[in-house]
Amino acid sequence: MTTVGLLYPGHAAEEDFPRIEVMLDSDIRVPLFHTDTGIGTGVGQGASRLEALREAGAPERLAAGVEELRLAGAESLVWASTNGSFVYGWDGAHQQVAGLARAAGLPASSTSFAFVHAVGELGAGRVAVASLDAEDIAPLFADFLTAAGLDVVSVRAVGDDSGPAPADAATWGPERVRELVAAADHPDAEVVLLPCTALHTAAFVPELEELVGKPVLTANQVTVWEGLRLADRRVWAPTLGTLFATREPPLGATQPRGIEVRE
């Protein structure tokens, strides 16, 4: 049995994770422990969206779910939020997961780092981003990816000026997600990234890949993959896309362990 503990912000597309458990068809558990984002409930009122996202990823908010996660027997921990990580910048995001690793005594990461490691797993370097964040937030993910050494050839932001479209992203059906991926694709991109963990995508990643003719990485997919990577567990599950259909990393690809603190 391998247990990957996830800290998930609020409530949106959490149904993706039990679905992924079933699709892995193995002795893998992916329990979720919800964190209070505070967004829309007082936190961030009178503040910018950037400040609100940073507050959602603050150490005291994330620490609330760590003890439950440990008691569940988790072997690794992933902060299942992309914008709740990259808004801290490359160095700040490292500090965020280092704090989680110390608090849990487990290998820890976040969805932002999961995307970086997953692109490396595929042996790719040029990416297109389909972001549901507001236009002032989406470029921060591109900056994060660039700091990781990736070439971001395009960013399509569909959030409006007042806040991100992910507020209703959990209601999006497959057709709308397909339209987003097609619109975000770029001829020079080797991979298309969908960084919103509020989108339901687990059931149709191969369809998205067939649509654009290249790998598509979605937030919930890479989050689970990252947790398994930290737990040293490789799984063959092509129904979850190219990422889960790669048994061995490409020649020359590196596999960073991530941040690990055991106490």
Rank of each mutant, 00 (worst) to 15 (best):
residue 120 G to C: 06
residue 122 L to I: 00
residue 123 G to S: 06
residue 124 A to L: 07
residue 129 V to C: 07
residue 130 A to Y: 06
residue 130 A to R: 06
residue 130 A to I: 04
residue 131 S to K: 08
residue 132 L to Q: 14
residue 134 A to C: 13
residue 135 E to F: 14
residue 135 E to Q: 15
residue 136 D to N: 14
residue 136 D to T: 14
residue 139 P to E: 11
residue 139 P to I: 06
residue 141 F to T: 07
residue 144 F to I: 15
residue 147 A to V: 11
residue 147 A to W: 09
residue 148 A to R: 10
residue 148 A to D: 04
residue 149 G to T: 09
residue 149 G to C: 08
residue 150 L to R: 07
residue 152 V to Y: 02
residue 153 V to T: 05
residue 154 S to R: 15
residue 155 V to F: 04
residue 155 V to T: 12
residue 156 R to L: 15
residue 157 A to E: 02
residue 159 G to L: 01
residue 159 G to Q: 01
residue 160 D to H: 12
residue 161 D to E: 15
residue 162 S to M: 09
residue 163 G to D: 05
residue 163 G to Q: 03
residue 165 A to M: 13
residue 165 A to D: 03
residue 168 D to R: 08
residue 168 D to M: 12
residue 170 A to R: 04
residue 171 T to F: 08
residue 172 W to P: 01
residue 172 W to G: 04
residue 173 G to C: 01
residue 174 P to H: 01
residue 179 E to M: 06
residue 180 L to Q: 11
residue 183 A to T: 01
residue 183 A to W: 01
residue 184 A to W: 04
residue 184 A to D: 04
residue 186 H to W: 05
residue 187 P to E: 03
residue 188 D to R: 07
residue 188 D to L: 14
residue 188 D to V: 02
residue 190 E to L: 02
residue 191 V to P: 00
residue 191 V to I: 01
residue 191 V to C: 01
residue 195 P to G: 00
residue 198 A to D: 12
residue 198 A to R: 07
residue 200 H to D: 01
residue 202 A to F: 05
residue 203 A to P: 01
residue 204 F to Y: 11
residue 204 F to I: 08
residue 205 V to E: 02
residue 206 P to F: 13
residue 207 E to I: 10
residue 209 E to H: 09
residue 210 E to L: 10
residue 211 L to H: 08
residue 212 V to R: 03
residue 214 K to I: 11
residue 216 V to C: 09
residue 217 L to I: 08
residue 220 N to Q: 09
residue 221 Q to E: 13
residue 222 V to S: 03
residue 222 V to F: 07
residue 226 E to A: 13
residue 227 G to C: 13
residue 227 G to S: 10
residue 228 L to S: 05
residue 229 R to P: 00
residue 230 L to E: 07
residue 230 L to V: 11
residue 231 A to R: 10
residue 232 D to C: 11
residue 232 D to T: 04
residue 232 D to K: 14
residue 235 V to F: 07
residue 237 A to V: 03
residue 240 L to Y: 03
residue 241 G to K: 08
residue 241 G to V: 05
residue 243 L to S: 07
residue 243 L to R: 07
residue 243 L to F: 13
residue 245 A to W: 07
residue 245 A to I: 10
residue 248 E to W: 13
residue 249 P to G: 11
residue 251 L to I: 14
residue 251 L to A: 15
residue 253 A to H: 10
residue 255 Q to G: 11
residue 257 R to C: 12
residue 258 G to L: 09
